[in-house]
């Protein structure tokens, strides 16, 4: 499968990366080169093979339902959460107005 300019533009839009026309033109052959290369995987016979789900045999551990048991994973720390915000507003994160 190879991608054209329109497809690359669509991917860029899905990925929310603004690209200029010139960048777009440059990306097309680059992505096609990489895609052509990874497509060799298609030749591997994977009949009856399950996709990998865990690299090391291990299963999901669940945690107890306790509020703020660890300050690193708990709430109640608005200052820390907002410390790096580009536009903090009265305890909120400010973003350009969204019209729904």
């Amino acid at each position: 499968m190879s991608v054209d300019t329109a497809t690359v533009a669509k991917i860029a839009s899905l990925a929310r990366i603004k690209v200029s026309e010139a960048e777009l033109e440059g990306m097309v052959p680059e992505l096609n080169g990489i895609l052509a290369w990874v497509e060799q995987l298609g030749e591997v016979d994977v009949t009856g093979v399950e996709p990998m789900t865990a690299v090391i045999p291990n299963q999901l551990r669940l945690r107890a339902d306790v509020i703020d048991a660890d300050p690193l994973t708990g709430g109640g720390r608005r200052d820390a959460v907002l410390a790096n915000a580009p536009a903090p507003e009265h305890g909120f994160f400010g973003v350009p107005k969204v019209i729904e």
């Binding site: 509020i67 048991a69 709430g75 109640g76 720390r77 608005r78 009265h90 305890g91």
Partner: peptide, 27 residues
């Protein structure tokens, strides 16, 4: 119905101050 969130220890109670019940994970 749970005390804390699905993937973090922040509280779930209704009506808190904005961003008061937010962990670093939730953000």
């Amino acid at each position: 119905t749970s005390n804390s969130k699905l993937f973090s220890g922040a509280a779930t109670a209704f009506g808190a101050e904005p961003n008061a019940q937010v962990s670093l994970i939730d953000a």
